[in-house]
Design a protein around this nucleic acid. Structure first.
Lengths: 253, 253
DNA sequence: AAGTGGTCTAGACCACCGT
DNA sequence: CGGTGGTCTAGACCACTTC
């Protein structure tokens, strides 16, 4: 038996604008996403077919497909050839994205701060030199911080960056994120490859994070690439597992 | 200064077939991906523009765009308006996907096996009932296994599944993956939402995984949805962190 | 047989980047 | 300024699912 089809409420598409700078497909997907979050489109319902939606809105089918595909990639919709497009059950979990911890926490209403532990130009470790594609022995900027949420330490962030960023003052990191500071300098952070694991906290980590000796930490290695495909950040981070975890949504393609 | 443009070797597109069942865009993206892996397209090079590639291959621009976008989503290419498309530096890391541990390990040449600890129909815990959208008090299939790599235990996998899967015999799990068995039964596993964290191993986990008391484990909660958007698997897994970690590639969209 | 998404074409105009 | 990717159109045919 087929799930009944639900006609999209006309209201949610009332303010589509062809003149503004926002792409049509994005306006469409935003409206549908909003309708899913608000419950106007309940879990499990089947959407109208792509052609009909296009006709109703006076848009071409590829534009509608683009909008729907964006939501499929987010894990909010599933498509089935010969059947239709349905809303996925279950709560929406934001994907671990290229946003910073600062952004994460501000959304949760927590006050994020940092303390800089290390701020110096050093000879690049071999792994870093390889990632950056520079000579072994070249210099890089080495940064190590403790991150606090409402005054509680919950992460130790160690990063190696190109020397061009070494003139960022330690004070700038205390109330702003590395991600944001790098963006302001024109860096772009487009692709991030990370490995997430667990291990026992080291003695310095025990002290900095206020842990008991032998406590576990969540550990992540991360390399971030910019819009030209070059590495611009090699990071080794560790987190208090009772205060931080990674949320991931995967979609079969 | 702009990175020099590299003409795609004609050779890699020699066997494009319009008659077979494989979509053209997929044939194109596969060939380009192969050229990146083999080094024919070195890190950092700028591809020809989309229109030119289309002309050369006798294909339309949307088809070429589709192929390139697939590789951008994989983190292998980056596009920049007004500039072009470039190959990302750095090693290719396979994304944590909807494939099973069995598949992962077989690719690595390890011999995966399992031992079933629990195999019974139980009353659904509330969280599971909610995810499945069934009445509290309904029954579900409860499965708990230890996973071995070359005879070494490295993971404990606890899953709650719809009762329809309860007739899978314990022996079937010993040399096959839950994912594969469910696929054979017509389930589809299309979207997976997981939370990855760390904690101290429990006493039974210490014993089953051969750990020292107080050792850390990598822990994951996972809910998997099928092609109709319904939850079909709620899992709580834990891994020996010295033998397992998660690789993730994120792309800014 | 009817309806769905999957793929593909051959154009068009735009915003953005580099020189 | 010329070249690039970003967006959009108005069709077409196909494979698949369901009835």
């Amino acid at each position: 038996m087929l799930q009944a089809q639900m006609v999209l409420p006309d209201g949610i598409f009332s303010d589509i604008s062809r003149s503004g700078p926002v792409p049509l497909y994005f306006q469409i997907s935003s409206r549908i996403e909003g309708a899913i979050h608000s419950g106007e489109l309940p879990a499990g319902v089947r959407l109208e077919n792509e052609v009909t939606i296009g006709k109703r809105l006076g848009l071409s089918r590829p534009t509608i497909r683009h909008a729907i595909q964006a939501l499929v990639d987010k894990g909010l919709l599933v498509k089935n050839p010969g059947v239709g497009t349905q809303v996925v059950h279950g709560k929406i979990t934001r994907n671990t994205a290229l946003t910073s911890l600062f952004d994460d926490m501000q959304r949760q209403g927590k006050q994020p701060t940092s303390r800089v532990l290390t701020h110096q130009v050093v000879e690049a470790p071999q792994a870093v030199a390889e990632a950056f594609g520079i000579e072994t022995g070249s210099t890089v900027f080495h940064l190590r911080r403790v991150r606090f949420a409402d005054g509680v330490p919950f992460a130790i962030l160690e990063n190696h960056l190109p020397v061009a960023f070494a003139d960022l003052a330690p004070e700038q990191f205390e109330n702003d994120s590395l991600h944001r500071l790098m963006c302001l300098r024109g860096a772009s952070m487009r692709v991030s490859k990370q490995t997430i694991g667990a291990r026992t906290a080291g003695s310095d980590e025990v002290e900095l994070l206020g842990l008991n000796p032998g406590a576990p930490v969540l550990a992540a290695h991360r390399t971030v690439y910019d819009n030209s495909g070059k590495a611009v950040d090699v990071g080794r981070h560790c987190y208090r597992p009772d205060l931080y975890s990674f949320d991931i949504t995967l979609v079969d393609k």
